[in-house]
Nucleic acid binder design. Sequence first.
DNA 1: AAGAATACTAAGTATTGCTTAGTATCAAAT
DNA 2: ATTTGATACTAAGCAATACTTAGTATTCTT
Lengths: 97, 97
Amino acid sequence: MNSPLAHRLRSARQAANLTQQQLGIRLGMDPNTASARMNQYEKGKHAPDYQTAKRMADELGVPVAYLYCDDDMLAELICVIAKLKESEKAELLEKLR
Amino acid sequence: MNSPLAHRLRSARQAANLTQQQLGIRLGMDPNTASARMNQYEKGKHAPDYQTAKRMADELGVPVAYLYCDDDMLAELICVIAKLKESEKAELLEKLR
DNA sequence: AAGAATACTAAGTATTGCTTAGTATCAAAT
DNA sequence: ATTTGATACTAAGCAATACTTAGTATTCTT
């Protein structure tokens, strides 16, 4: 089993309409290495450390947990739920348990 | 910002009533190194690769995304939602968007 | 077809995790 | 109170992995 981060990253980056290099630069990477690094993450060749993954998630407007979620439906739910207000999340949690 | 994995791992392991070594052995680690490795993950000294995190999550009965979730309420929601049937998850997703 | 932009890759170097070999801490028993 | 056993934890060297470099491949635009 390999990490879902590669595919989730790609789909979120494309949804945000950014190139691999553009995204890397926004994350604070050296412009000379941003392209190669981001491509390696997106092709699943290497894995970013957590801090980098968190910055990617923030920049792309998805929860960081989304990048690591191996279940497609749960991944979608994570994205939708993250957009709720705190009070709505609390309410949903109450209802579910 | 440092990884939430350390704390999430600890709470899930304690909930499962396992020692660090016991859990490591169940994940297929060499019994001689299981204790040190698991402790390093739990103290946040080192980060496991995804495959190891996935095995930890499976063994502890939580979704792997939970280990990487930096938002407490969302983390709880992830655990609760993962226990729903597929049809119930689909229904919830429909309702939320 | 040419040029520019984007995506991708091999290989060496830098960094990080894993193993080893212990020490620290706590609980239970004597 | 001391010993014993179980659990938690740590430093340091070795092994594995990510990052940088220097490009090539592909796609898009004109």
